[in-house]
Every structure is written in C-alpha cells, then in structure tokens.
Amino acid sequence: MMPEVHQNPLTNRESEAPMLPEAWRVVANDWENHDTFTLQLERDSGGPFAFLPGQFNMLYGFGRGESAISISGADEESGTLYHTIRRVGTVTRALSELNPGDTVGLRGPFGSAWPVERLFGRDLVFIAGGIGLAPLRPAIRYALAHRERYGNIVILIGARSPEDVVFPAEIDQWSGTEGVETRVSVDRATPDWKRNVGVVTNLIAKADFDPSNSAAMICGPEIMMRYAILELNKRGMDDAGIFLTMERNMKCAVGFCGHCQLGPEFICRDGPVFRYDHFKHWFSQREL
C-alpha cells in the first residue's frame, strides 16, 4: 500500500491568533543566483521549531505583505531555518533586501509533507524544476541521511539555464554520493555546460529505478509536472506512487481566505503536497 501524504500535525493549531506572525531574525541572506536568494532565520524567542519536509511558512516583509515560502532546510545545531526565494514581486523583493540582524514575521509551519519516512524500502525519484528544488531539499536531505533504508535514489533537476540552477554546490555533493543518481538538465546551455540539455522530464526514461517499488516526488511548474507524470506512467509507475506539490494564491494559509482552493482542496491545508491519484480529477482541469 502506498502511504498517504503526511498531514500537518499542526503543532500550532491551538494558536489563539493564527494570523499573528512571530519575529525571526535574519542570520544571513545569500544570493543563490541572479534572482534567487536564501534567508537563514533564527527565532527571536529561541524556542524549538518542528517541521516536516515540504511544509511552508508565511514570511512577512514589514509593511509589504506575506508570501508562502517553503522551508528549504534547517540547521539542527543552531535551530535556524532556511527559505530559498525567487524575487518576483513586491513581497519577495522586500525579503530580498533584508540584511543580517533585520527581523521578519513568520507564521507556520503549514501544510502537508512529503511522506519520506513512510517510504522506506523503496526507490525514490525526486524531480525538481527551477526553484522547485527548494521544497524538495529537506526531503532529499532526509533520504540521504537515511540512505541505507531506501533502494535507489534518483534526483532529477531541471533549470532554464546553468545560472538558474539553485544549490549547485550541494548538487555536486549529491552527485558524489554512492548509490545516488543525480542528473541536471538545462533548457538553454552555455558553452561550458557539461551536463544534460533539454527538459528535465526527458531524464525519466533512462533513470534507474524499479517502477513497481518506488515513489516519485515532483515539484516544479505545472506543465513540467504534467509531463513528469506522463513519463513516470510510461515507465509503469502507478499514480498512487506519485506525489506532487501545488501553488495557488494564498493570503492566510489556515483555510480562511479561500484563495488557494483547487476543486475541493485548500492547497494550504490539504496540500501543498498531494498524492496524485487523489488529486488527478482536479489537476487535469483548465482554469480551475
């Protein structure tokens, strides 16, 4: 039996004021590439912060607003959290301008999670497009930290161009890990690019995993996820073995604002991670 996605244990459900952010301090703000940066944040109150891979927070830029941002990693020793953010508009721009020592508002964690700890014994296929690697990274790190408990681990990463690839140093590290197949593909290569060229979903056909005993976790643009599912199905993978994450406009993250609805699902609460067989009916509808 394929496991379900991991629902938010909602450590904060009892919260009296689920819309009230908490102050977190910027430890570092580093550019990953020309438009994407990673904020390392430390909780002002110092308390512990538990989350599951795939969950997200609402980050508040002073006077500008909030954005849903996935947790892209955590440092267990210091208790700091990482958020990797593409600068696209008002709020993400405000966040990009933060300096170490500044504070942001943070609410979370929200949403469902990749069920990595329920997939022991299987091959894992991670498929990321662009910034989609950020929400997958905690799951990949978890799998690698428990390497012996899984079969093959395949990590397929796509980006528009070499300079759009996020976490290149960490990807190199993964590439060097025994029993981990890491492939990166870009749509538009530069002369010095030595890896694959073309859409990331082209890599699925040749990847080494057993479709009858594996699970795929996909995060990227919807069109890319559609093709990834097609390719996985072609390899014989069942819809129930495919997990994907969705994005919709989100104003509250707690099921009050109504914006993130997609069919009967509230992306903030029932998602963002879905098991594809449960979600299929809604995923295939235009303008829903």
Binding site: Y60, T103, G105
Partner: peptide, 17 residues
C-alpha cells in the same frame, strides 16, 4: 485589523494583535 507591526529602538519588529 489582523495585527499591527512596529520597529522597536533596535529596529526589530514587534507584532501585536
């Protein structure tokens, strides 16, 4: 109103419902 945010003397944000 959901909350008010202000900067304290050190520039840190404080949130109040």
């Amino acid at each position: 109103k959901l909350f008010g945010a202000s900067r304290d003397r050190e520039g840190a944000l404080r949130f109040e419902s």
